[in-house]
Amino acid sequence: MIKSLVFLLEFLKGLWITAKHFWINIFFNFLKLIGFNIRDRGSVTIQYPEEKKEIARRHRSLHRILTREDGSPRCVACMLCMTVCPSECIYIEAEEDPNPEIQKRPSKFIIDLSRCCFCGFCVEACPEDALRMDTNIVELGEYNREKLIYDLNRLVRISK
């Protein structure tokens, strides 16, 4: 019985905390309503489609393929990203590049975003710094699976 009474005390404390939150938040929400610009008090909710959260500097978003100065993709088709990819979403086919300094280039470079888990291993594996995930494009939903398959041209175009 005494134990229960102690509990009751704690319950009152809990009620006090929630009530405090309630009134403080009501106060700040009211201030917001009448036009004060308060960001971090009241509610912390971000109203998604209208407001967007600032994307972190170290985020990982849609891939892009960087280009050399002449506009050709930097990728040399070493297939390290294809090897390291845990969700097996990158497929590359290589071909001979006429330039002996480059020698190898991808003839096919496909990222299947419907499988991608955005781990960023491909970016880390890339020895040429050809692949990056810093496009800030995170809204990648599509109504069609085919549209989620990005080929070389599309990945290069994102970069421009």
Partner: peptide, 10 residues
């Protein structure tokens, strides 16, 4: 609404 305000939501 009350639950939201108590929990710092909207």
């Amino acid at each position: 609404k009350e639950s939201a305000v108590v929990q710092d939501r909207i």
